[in-house]
C-alpha cells in the first residue's frame, strides 16, 4: 500500500515531512498545552498564511520567484512570534490579548494578498487544508533542518523549559532565564508551524500540536511519558492520515485531524471502560 509513496520522489518527500512533523509538532505541543498557550499556535498559523499569500502574490504579480511562499511563510511566522512576545510585554496584565490581535491581522493580510494575487486558487486551497504532493527536495532539507533545531532545543533546555512551564516564578528564582527561553520557544513554535502547514494546512496546524497531546496526557503518568505518547499518537495520525488522504483524494489536513480525534475518542472510551471495570472489581471484593 505504501508503494505509491515511495515510487514518486515528491510523495516520498511528503511522507518524510509527515514523519518529521508528526514528531516535532506534538513535541513542542506538549509544552504548549501545559502552558495553556494553544491559541498561540492558531495565531501564528494565520500569520503564516499571510506570509504564504504574500509569496504567492509576489510570484504571480511580479514573477519574483525568489519569494517562495514556503520561505515567506516562515518569515512571517517568525515576525508574528516576535510581535506576540512584544505585545505580551506591553499588555502584561492580560497577555492573551496578543493572540486575537495577531490572528486577526494575519487573516486580514491574507485576504488582501490573496485578492491581489487574483483570488482563491489551488495553491491557497492547499495552504488551508494541507496537501500530499507539494514538497521539493530543497523544502524537505529545510524541514529536516528545522526539525533538528527543535529537537536539539528541547533536548538541551528540557529541564529549564519544564520548570518554566510548571511554575515560572520558582523557575526564575532557580536561575532559569525565562525571557530568553520564552523567546526561543516561541521562535521554535513559529518554525514548527510553518513546517507543519505543508502537511496539515493553516486551519489545522494547531490541532496537530494539541490533539495528540490531549490524548497522550490521558494515559501518561509523567511529563516525559506525555511527550512520548503524544509523539506516538502524532505519528499514527500523520501516517494514517496521509495514506487515506492519498487514496481517497482528500487533503491530508482533514484525514490527519480526524484520525487524531478518533484516537482521542478511543483513548477516552478505553479509560472509561477501565475505570468502570475497576469499580466493578471493588464491588466484587465488597460483596
Amino acid at each position: 500500500m505504501l508503494d505509491a509513496f515511495f515510487q514518486y520522489e515528491l510523495l516520498r518527500n511528503t511522507f518524510y515531512t509527515g514523519l518529521l512533523v508528526g514528531l516535532i509538532a506534538p513535541l513542542l505541543g506538549a509544552f504548549i498545552v501545559v502552558r495553556r498557550q494553544s491559541m498561540i499556535a492558531d495565531g501564528l498559523s494565520h500569520v503564516t498564511l499571510a506570509g504564504l499569500a504574500f509569496g504567492l502574490f509576489m510570484q504571480k504579480k511580479y514573477t519574483l520567484l525568489m519569494f517562495a511562499p514556503f520561505h515567506t511563510g516562515i518569515l512571517f511566522s517568525i515576525i508574528g512570534a516576535l510581535i506576540i512576545e512584544n505585545l505580551r510585554d506591553v499588555y502584561k496584565a492580560f497577555q492573551e490579548i496578543a493572540i486575537p490581535i495577531i490572528l486577526s491581522v494575519g487573516v486580514g493580510l491574507s485576504i488582501v494578498f490573496i485578492a491581489l494575487a487574483d483570488g482563491i486558487n489551488t495553491d491557497i486551497y492547499t495552504y488551508l487544508f494541507g496537501s500530499i504532493a507539494a514538497i521539493s527536495s530543497s523544502d524537505l532539507r529545510l524541514i529536516i533542518f528545522i526539525s533538528l533545531l527543535v529537537i536539539i532545543f528541547i533536548f538541551v533546555c528540557y529541564k529549564d523549559l519544564f520548570a518554566l512551564s510548571f511554575d515560572s516564578e520558582f523557575a526564575i528564582v532557580s536561575g532559569v532565564k525565562s525571557k530568553t527561553l520564552n523567546f526561543v520557544f516561541i521562535l521554535m513554535t513559529a518554525l514548527v508551524i510553518s513546517a507543519s502547514i505543508r502537511i496539515v494546512g493553516v486551519l489545522l496546524v494547531s490541532a496537530l500540536m494539541t490533539l495528540p497531546v490531549a490524548t497522550g496526557m490521558r494515559i501518561a503518568k509523567s511529563f516525559k511519558q506525555t511527550i512520548f505518547y503524544s509523539i506516538i499518537y502524532g505519528e499514527i495520525a500523520v501516517i494514517v492520515g496521509l495514506i487515506t488522504g492519498y487514496y481517497f483524494e482528500i487533503p491530508p489536513g482533514g484525514t490527519i485531524v480526524i484520525t487524531s480525534a478518533l484516537l482521542l475518542g478511543l483513548t477516552l472510551l478505553f479509560n472509561k471502560l477501565k475505570a468502570v471495570r475497576s469499580l466493578k472489581k471493588d464491588d466484587g471484593y465488597a460483596a
Binding site: V34, F162, M217, A220, K221, S222, F223, K224, Q225, T226
Partner: peptide
C-alpha cells in the same frame, strides 16, 4: 499538569 512527584 501531567507530572510525577519525582519530576516536580
Amino acid at each position: 499538569f501531567p507530572a510525577t512527584v519525582k519530576e516536580v
